[in-house]
């Protein structure tokens, strides 16, 4: 499903050049749950942004669904992203001015889905995430755990093939964090590929494979349970 070949990312300003990723190569098969770990500044989020088509690599190749996408334009990336990828962020990134229902509905609007169909899909997800009773509330009226559940709901409402999670439990207490991780685990068990960036070993243990980065390079891959087609 995913394959990177010598992926590199260099950030340049007038005076400073920073290599965030250096010749990173790996592959991920469909249905895998992969955790990416490493110290702060090792390039985890940069890698996730590239995998999620939020950024382009400086060099190297990135194959997603058998297509080489490293040179895609913003519009091409946006199209591929909305059709296939869901995102979960550490700080939830919900739109404060929209209700829970409207936040979850947003990706479906951008896909051009009709309102009747949207309503049905969103309510289904709300039930699944057990937040139907909060559908008319605004994000600031919810707890951290509830907000992250909404974010996960938004990520999965389009039934993506791939979910990218950037420290999804980073702003949550342990109980809420466990709750979110178990949701991700269930999603993975139903066939969704998940790539998660985390500092937490406990969270990483939910994954089948852990890729460790250091200074922009893969140092180890710890395969807990290699998924074989």
């Amino acid at each position: 499903m995913i394959k990177t070949v010598n992926l590199s990312k260099v950030f340049r300003t007038d005076e400073v050049e920073t290599t965030a990723l250096n010749l990173v190569s790996f592959s991920i098969t469909k249905g895998e749950f992969v955790a990416i770990m490493g110290p702060s500044g090792c390039g985890k989020s940069t890698l996730l942004n590239i995998l999620g088509l939020l950024d382009n690599p400086t060099s190297g190749e990135y194959y997603l669904f058998e297509r080489e996408v490293s040179k895609f334009t913003e519009r091409q990336r946006a199209l591929l992203r909305k059709q296939n990828i869901g995102f979960v962020f550490q700080n939830f990134n919900l739109v404060d001015e929209l209700t829970v229902f409207e936040n979850i509905e947003l990706p479906l609007i951008y896909r051009g889905m009709y309102s009747g169909e949207r309503k049905k899909r969103v309510e289904q997800i709300l039930e699944q995430m057990q937040i139907m009773h909060r559908k008319k509330h605004f994000p600031l009226q919810l707890s951290g755990g509830q907000q992250q559940r909404v974010a996960v709901a938004r990520a999965v409402v389009t039934r993506p093939n791939l979910i990218l999670a950037d420290e999804p439990t980073g702003n949550l207490d342990s109980a809420n964090g466990e709750e979110v991780m178990s949701i991700l685990e269930k999603l993975n068990q139903s066939g969704t590929t998940i790539i998660m960036v985390t500092h937490s070993q406990r969270d990483a243990d939910y994954a089948q494979r852990i890729i460790r980065l250091f200074d922009g390079q893969i140092v180890t891959e710890n395969i807990r349970e290699r998924f074989v087609i």
Partner: peptide
């Protein structure tokens, strides 16, 4: 900014 970023992440084109 955050709202714009998120809308783009979930599929909004720039023109939208």
């Amino acid at each position: 900014a955050k709202e714009v970023g998120m809308r783009k992440v979930i599929g909004a084109y720039r023109v939208q």
